[in-house]
Design a protein around this nucleic acid. Sequence first.
DNA 1: CGTCTTTGACCCGCGC
DNA 2: GCGCGGGTCAAAGACG
Length: 166
Amino acid sequence: MFSYSSSSPPSSSAAISSSYLSLNMLNNNHASYEQMAGPGIGSVTDGGGDELKTVSGKVNVRKPEKKVKKPKHAFQTRSQVDILDDGYRWRKYGQKAVKNNKFPRNYYRCTHQGCNVKKQVQRLSHDDGVVVTTYEGVHSHPIEKSTDNFENILTQMQIYSRLNDS
DNA sequence: CGTCTTTGACCCGCGC
DNA sequence: GCGCGGGTCAAAGACG
């Protein structure tokens, strides 16, 4: 888990320069909580097919069965940017304002087919340097990118994660 | 021209 | 039953 690999913006648009993205991973209440309620449930990946669309175009998200709660992992990171590119491709599908926060919460989803991993990013209003990223599900496909010195940073992130874990 | 972001509406669970 | 909070969809626009 947490197989952070690397990420790098397209070479043409180096939007996320290392100077801008200063990951200060000195945090860490990496609160990782897993919620599993189903008896004998091994796989986390929701099989999909829970979504039924009515003819009128409305969406009825039906999930009467499968009371499986997918594991969620919340990471708290000190960063200026909310979008921590972990190497996967995310598609933003929603943005809602949270009651206790002035800043809205962003919802992302992995664009890989069959990969229903979701991620939501929330930043603390009272501390704009802190970003809480919550991952939901696990990726079942390799990372599409690889590249530059981001690996270093990400490697350090893993190290930090280990340190905190111990 | 294809992909992703934006943004309002919609849905659902819960509390009153 | 209604309002609130949270999560999702999908049309249209923005962007490369």
